[in-house]
């Protein structure tokens, strides 16, 4: 099939995603990723810590671990959809970061993303595909934050590329 041979125009892909997001908004809520990831963190923490998790109030007051939280399944779906797309178009293969510096950057970046999402209550997806289109004041706050952050990140990245 042609779809699995050529790269899809991202404008077409994102327009389609936006239309689907409108339906999702009517049924359960707009597209988001951070909330599902937090719930997965809570479920994993519960597996590792058992009853000890009760000693961390965050998991009682903000996110109570619950496997029936719909946002989890968006993330799992994205993983599944991408896996199918990659396998059918013969693009699936294991890729490892080559240099140690890449591993370090990914580690720091991952940690910052995790802390940032929880501190803000939103991730980049909710910012661009939820809050801002809902004209939520938080959307503008979040966009100014993410633009400043991406700029600082880009400057660090540039330094690393040159150095």
């Amino acid at each position: 099939m042609e779809f699995f041979k050529k790269t899809l125009d991202p404008i077409v892909a994102l327009a389609a995603i936006a239309v689907l997001d409108l339906f999702l908004f009517l049924i359960v809520g707009s597209w988001t990723v951070g909330g599902g990831e937090t719930m997965m963190t809570g479920l994993l923490a519960k597996i590792f810590l058992g009853e000890e998790i009760a000693r961390i109030p965050f998991w009682n007051l903000v996110f109570v671990p619950d496997a029936g939280y719909w946002k989890i399944y968006i993330s799992l779906g994205m993983f599944f959809g991408a896996f199918m797309g990659a396998v059918i178009s013969k693009e699936f293969y294991l890729r490892f970061p080559r240099r140690l510096s890449e591993w370090v950057l990914i580690t720091i970046g991952g940690l910052l993303m995790g802390v940032g999402i929880r501190l803000a209550f939103v991730c980049n997806v909710s910012t661009f595909f939820g809050l801002t289109p809902e004209l939520n004041l938080g959307g503008y706050l979040a966009i100014s934050g993410i633009l400043a952050g991406a700029w600082v990140g880009s400057m660090i990245y540039k330094k690393m590329l040159e150095g």
């Binding site: 803000a120 209550f121 991406a150």
Partner: peptide, 8 residues
């Protein structure tokens, strides 16, 4: 939060 996220 989004600033940290953006850098990350």
């Amino acid at each position: 939060g989004l600033f940290l996220f953006g850098v990350g």
